[in-house]
């Protein structure tokens, strides 16, 4: 407890704000797309996620989940309000700073987004090269990561030689190899069968136990209901509910 207090003081001295214990902090966020005739995608979103949390964001298509993820990635900027991720105010961030900021995040998508012409090893090593790690470190870190996701034996395979579940593990290894503080997973099991879904969710849980904050966007009712984590439900651009150990809410 004393340790946490110290950490908190250190942070508040550094940032001078009391929102710094949150790795994700949204306050009064609004976002509308210009081509949607001003119909807002998100309205007055207030959201705080602490370091080390495991959070599900659920909702139907059109609920604003994707927009929310894009705001967190700084792929989009909010029309108004405040978006702070890893102590960085994304609403004020310049384009040139975005790359550095994204290195503090790990991202996984439904469609895996692997470089198809490169093998498993290179796909993971790629993330390390971007942060200018030496080849020596890369040769140590990448195999470690691949064995963590259970793919140590397939480092030479090309993505198309792998099953969906395996491809998602590669994507996960790539997202985690730079030791991000937050892992954002956008429908990570959307293209997977139930068995692979379970395996990926177990991996995410393991990542979370190692201290990484995990945010999973999904509409898979079963995993939300069985895992008993915090669940934030979005509907038509507003937060419908936000519950610890929540469940999937049906219409």
């Amino acid at each position: 407890m004393a340790e946490q207090e110290k950490e908190k003081k250190k942070k508040s001295r550094k940032g001078g704000k009391d929102d710094s214990k949150y790795v994700i902090y949204l306050e009064g966020v609004n976002k509308a797309y210009s081509d949607a005739n001003g119909v807002p995608a998100l309205m007055d979103i207030n959201l705080k996620i602490k370091r080390g949390e495991f959070v599900f964001i659920v909702g139907d298509s059109g609920s604003g989940k994707s927009t929310l993820i894009k705001l967190l990635l700084r792929e989009l900027t909010a029309d108004s309000g405040k978006v702070v991720v890893n102590d960085q105010d994304l609403t004020k961030m310049k384009h040139a700073q975005v790359a550095k900021f994204r290195r503090t995040l790990g991202v996984v998508f439904q469609d895996f987004r692997l470089l198809k012409d490169r093998n498993v090893y290179d796909n993971v090593a790629f993330a390390q090269r971007i942060v200018l790690k030496s080849e020596k470190e890369i040769r140590k870190n990448v195999p470690n990561m691949l064995s963590m996701v259970g793919l140590a034996g397939k480092y030479k395979a090309k993505p198309k030689q792998l099953s969906g579940g395996e491809q998602q593990r590669v994507a996960l290894a790539r997202a985690l190899v730079n030791k991000p503080t937050i892992l954002l997973a956008d429908e990570p099991t959307g293209n997977l069968d139930p068995r692979n879904t379970n395996d990926i969710m177990k991996l995410l849980e393991k990542v979370n136990e190692n201290g990484t904050t995990v945010v999973v966007v999904t509409h898979n009712r079963d995993i939300v209901n069985t895992m008993q984590k915090r669940v934030i439900t979005l509907k038509q651009g507003v937060i419908l509910s936000d519950e610890e150990k929540g469940a999937y809410i049906d219409d």
């Binding site: 990635l73 040139a96 790359a99 550095k100 900021f101 994204r102 290195r103 995040l105 991202v107 987004r113 692997l114 470089l115 790629f126 993330a127 971007i130 942060v131 790539r174 730079n178």
Partner: peptide
């Protein structure tokens, strides 16, 4: 396009 997208998500600078 996809390749560039992936690079950007992983945190590659414009130069990279």
């Amino acid at each position: 396009k996809e390749e560039i997208n992936i690079m950007k998500y992983v945190g590659a600078t414009d130069f990279f």
